[in-house]
Amino acid sequence: MIRLENVYKSYSGSTGPWVLEDLSLGIGAREMVFLLGASGAGKSTLLKLVTLEERPTKGKIKVHHFDSSLVKERQVPELRRRCGVVYQDFRLIRDKTVQENVAYVLKMTGILDPDVIRNESHRVLDLVGLYAKRHQFPTTLSGGEQQRCAIARALVHQPSIVLADEPTGNLDPAMGAEIFEILRRVNVAGATVLVATHDQDLARRFADRIVVLEQGKLRREETPRARRSVELGELGPVR
């Protein structure tokens, strides 16, 4: 689903300093992978590389059939529409209501039938528990609610990959766990989920696999045993 091959990324030129250095990583379909690391470890950059917000300085990234070394700029929106992205700062459109924020993505993908838009928007808002507040503007919502709105927006077009960049960074721990629970449900429903966070406890609680980055390098990978056994026991193998 996502494959990074010897990826280097620098914002200063082709000789470094490297934000990501010689990174190789594969993420399969329906996996829930957490990127752990301190600030500046390269987690956000890695997510930006997946959506081609940034291009690797060296190396290659493949997402679905999109190859970073071959994909043209006009094909990038198509790749991004196959992903749903959740940001720490929510990035909601302030002058649109919760439902309009969510519906906008559908309109962007060419779905303009009002009935379909309404049904799909209601479905995801129900999923994230925001249906009752669908006519409110983002500024009237709490941080947790805004993040749930951002998740609904990321899910409404049923992407096969969901990326979340520090989705709980602005939230209290209880709300953080709730957000990860929603992402876990999305993963169980069939999406590949890649989350950048520095919250080790939550990562160990929800991840299929943890990738630890340190100063742009892959330090180690972990497979939390507890999570795996619970998953298999409750839902059976998902892959």
Binding site: R80, C83, L92, V105, M108, T109, R153
Partner: peptide, 9 residues
């Protein structure tokens, strides 16, 4: 900017 990152052409 938001529209661009969520895939608007």
């Amino acid at each position: 900017r938001i529209l661009k990152v969520v895939g608007a052409t």
